[in-house]
Design a protein around this nucleic acid. Structure first.
Lengths: 145, 145
DNA sequence: GTATTCTCTACAAATTTTATAGACTTTTTA
DNA sequence: TAAAAAGTCTATAAAATTTGTAGAGAATAC
């Protein structure tokens, strides 16, 4: 399971992606709308900024915004930044690889299967982007029609 | 990432699968060969037994053994028993479902993507079984040829 | 009936996750 | 140019989970 932190990150990014053209968005705004503890969210957004996913502006009229077009940031990237490895085993991870204590990967059948799991998972997470998880903006829907 | 507990479970099952026809295997034996803390392993094997994956026999000549043919137990089953949910989000889990606080799944784009991730992952984990991760038994390989 | 082996419950230590506090810096603007 | 607005940064605390240990108990084989 993704950590709460990562779930918060995805919600925040989903919110920001939908407001891409509307200039910087306040942390406070995101926290309230998405019901995320504000101080926790601060840390998360900062991390996303340090990873070049978000940009920010200080002072009046400031806030956070996507640094690139929503379709340029994959969900895999987000998860790796906030949560770490996507693979189910360390010996199978592309970005957080760690050798197993005793096993030799060339002949380890467990390793082989989990490479397949990783690839299946990544096929989705690398291809889906913030564009695909954009918030539907309620205000934009006209129910009077 | 899978917990150490689940990794131990998979190693133990991999060991047992390869020794399927040789009668019960001692906890001690598995623990030594797979370098798993024995008391921890006891708990794990017991859990696998309670989940009907393993059978056991007490007393001299006793030990643990697979309850069914190796190809009858999927890796998904094992992971669910030991680790819990395979899905990345609670609102997307088949066996450990939990509703999100504020989101309505029908229109939640995050939910939709993670259903796809889940299905891609499960396609592998449901189809692969203990047969696929059987230990290669070193003793059985004849290097003299 | 005793040695062997799994069973069960409780607990303890370590680590990770979740969250909060508060002082600091940058920017805007009156 | 000072005050208000907003993000930055580091440290710490609380809670939860994971990892591992202890030891008495029950079943079985010989």
């Amino acid at each position: 399971m993704l950590s709460k932190k990562t779930q918060y990150a995805l919600k925040a990014l989903s919110y920001l992606a939908a407001r891409q053209d509307q200039g910087p968005v306040l942390i406070t705004d995101i926290a309230e709308q998405k019901k995320i503890p504000i101080k926790f969210l601060e840390n998360i957004l900062l991390e996303l900024k340090n990873a070049q996913i978000l940009g920010s502006k200080k002072g009046r009229g400031g806030g956070y915004f996507l640094r690139n077009a929503p379709d340029k940031t994959s969900l895999a990237t987000v998860i790796r930044v906030v949560d770490g490895p996507i693979a189910l085993l360390p010996c199978v991870s592309l970005y957080f690889y760690q050798k197993c204590a005793d096993c030799t990967e060339e002949i380890c059948p467990i390793n082989a299967v989990f490479v397949q799991v990783r690839d299946a998972t990544l096929a989705v997470l690398e291809s889906k982007t913030l564009e695909d998880i954009q918030d539907l903006i309620p205000e934009a829907i006209d129910f009077s029609i």
